[in-house]
Nucleic acid binder design. Structure first.
Lengths: 364, 364
DNA sequence: TTGTAGGCGTTATCAG
DNA sequence: CTGATAACGCCTACAA
């Protein structure tokens, strides 16, 4: 079977040089019309498709952006991967809310949209741990890279940032020349606390979430200072430091339930965590919001559909995804020389899990 | 700011030739340990990240697969794109079921999973119409390409198939050397018809869907032959030939409603169409399933959450996505010389919209 | 074990 | 308007 057609083949068939073939495609009006037509015809006959990688090599830019994320489901056993996310499980299985677009997905959607508008090819890749081979591969193919930090070490990102512009979602500013794109976790959490305290007159509030995730730590700090602002002594540590995907999932919380040591309200570091908490409480026969109030953070879709619906703080995820792609494109492959950052505002979304019944949105 | 580090830089710093640098990365044990360490150290110091595109050029394969799909929302106005898919709209807006993973998304998920397992980078791109520039660009970057045919012309696909292996989802076999991956639309539709006729004793059944979509046409044919098998005269044409995203959306159906000319049952060419039909009927005050039965096709998640839940035929979407990536990888960049095809089985999923109440799954 | 050199498919510079 | 020709960054026989 014939080799793939290249500029050489087209040039030969059209009786011109390879340079002219290239021009015919990239700068059409620099070529005489008759010549151009001859070339295009030859290309058509030969089934010529330009090799975009060679092009990238020659031009020094690929016109592509990468998005690297984490996906705990990747190496999960069949059933989990299929059932949890894509609803592949049997129809008799209860619908798992986590099958809906998650935080990452909503940002990704925005990223995709912007790539489309800016005519960038999108390369997707993901990993499950701190291993670095996949993200490095990605970095070697694109002009700019957006990353959900997760388990990736700072060193890894720093290393890659020497090669191309890198934007990280949701990470606290550092001295590494990355673009840090996040939200005001602190203010978001405080608005939630204010709501619980002022509207629901609750003062016995605990936090659930791991502190080794920078975002979560900021939220914890917002929680602490929020309580303080109301003269409430703040617990020095979360009630439970679980994070999704960990083995000891919500063990401490489970214990608190067993001991009848639940606070009046539980503020979770993320919506996904909050949904897990709702599941757990329901499972234990604890009623939300009657027995305990629960809040989340992020504003993912699933929180609108849970029972009860989830009071939370919403991040403008699609806008953030778009912004990320924009920044990367605008930077045209040039890495940053100093750390950049941008914070998006969040807004309080009051639903049922805090005891508000069918209330509307409260601006903030 | 310094240029990106290349093999040359690393070689110089380590005092070796570029070949040795390459070996150190690709065939480590072909290089003496001390040399290798020196090279790796130099690479580390310089922030060297291999250029995967150059690599692909040199090796003749990129280790990447492409997935091209359609996305009507891409060029939709802001609000639509955000609201309909990513739930970016205000919280007071009713949740749009179409915000959940669609047919395409569920297949994509499978494709992603398999890419991950086979260590392939995934390139994503999409378009809104028959324009060919984006898919061509994609084709110029990868070793294999999976495509949702949609508005792409046969000629376009045929052309691209001269360069690399191409797999199309859901398209009827042709004489073009593509891999056709689909499901047994015919049998699926017949099982639905059988259910309506034998279980619900309905004989006045109409079809809704465009016939210029090959998949839909096959489903229509299954519908016709299904009726015939029960001695029911089959209408020569659908009640409505709308397809999603068209201007005249469901105009004929709307008319039928106005004229009181609705049949006892409406079989839709796809779940998404069926959901639109449910919306329309509800809007007009027509009750489902009391006044009219409705069925879909595909088995997307949203059909489990609609009111009423949707009776349909489910395709093994994730499995199909995985299979697609497998086939493409296994073919190692070699295009097919003759048309290939593979059909996946479907299964009847009985829910409420056909009048079955809270029934379980009926195997088939 | 390591170096030399040619090639992968395009683009871009510089003549003509 | 068109043609040589040198990059682009890496891989890989083939030699040494």
């Amino acid at each position: 079977m014939a080799r793939r057609a290249t500029v050489y083949d087209v040039a030969e068939r059209a009786g011109v040089s390879i340079a002219t073939v290239s021009y015919a495609f990239r700068q059409p009006d620099r070529v005489r019309e008759s010549t151009r037509e001859r070339i295009l015809a030859a290309a058509q006959d030969l089934g010529y498709v330009p090799n975009a990688n060679a092009r990238g090599l020659a031009r020094g830019k690929t016109n592509a952006l990468g998005l690297y994320s984490f996906d705990l489901m990747l190496d999960a056993p069949q059933g989990l991967s299929a059932g949890s996310r894509a609803a592949g499980a049997g129809d008799d299985v209860e619908v798992d809310l986590r099958a809906f677009p998650l935080y990452v997905d909503e940002i990704q959607r925005g990223f995709e949209l912007e790539c489309w508008h800016r005519d960038q090819t999108l390369l997707l890749s993901s990993g499950t741990g701190p291993e670095t081979s996949r993200v490095t591969d990605l970095a070697g193919r694109v002009d700019g890279l957006a990353v959900f930090p997760g388990p990736l070490s700072d060193e890894s990102l720093q290393f890659l940032s020497r090669r191309l512009p890198i934007l990280v979602f949701s990470r606290e500013p550092s001295d590494v020349p990355l673009f840090h794109l996040g939200v005001d976790n602190y203010a978001g959490m405080r608005s939630l606390v204010d709501h619980l305290v002022l509207v629901h007159h609750v003062r016995d509030i605990m936090f659930v979430g791991a502190l080794d995730v920078p975002e979560y730590r900021q939220r914890f700090e917002g929680y602490v200072s929020g309580l303080a602002a109301h003269g409430i002594p703040a617990p020095g540590r979360p009630l439970d430091e679980s994070d999704l995907g960990r083995a000891d999932n919500l063990a401490s919380l489970r214990e608190a339930v067993a001991d009848g040591a639940l606070p009046r309200a539980v503020m979770c570091a993320s919506d996904q965590l909050a949904l897990a908490v709702l599941d757990l409480l329901e499972d234990k026969g604890v009623r939300v919001p009657q027995d305990v109030l629960v809040t989340g953070f992020d504003g993912i879709l699933a929180g609108r559909l849970s029972a009860p619906t989830l009071t939370t703080v919403r991040q403008p995820m699609e806008a953030m995804g778009r912004f990320a792609a924009q920044v990367l494109v605008d930077n045209g492959g040039q890495r940053w020389t100093s750390p950049q950052s941008r914070s998006f505002p969040v807004r309080l979304v009051v639903r049922d899990s805090c005891g508000c019944g069918r209330a509307g949105t409260v601006g903030h």
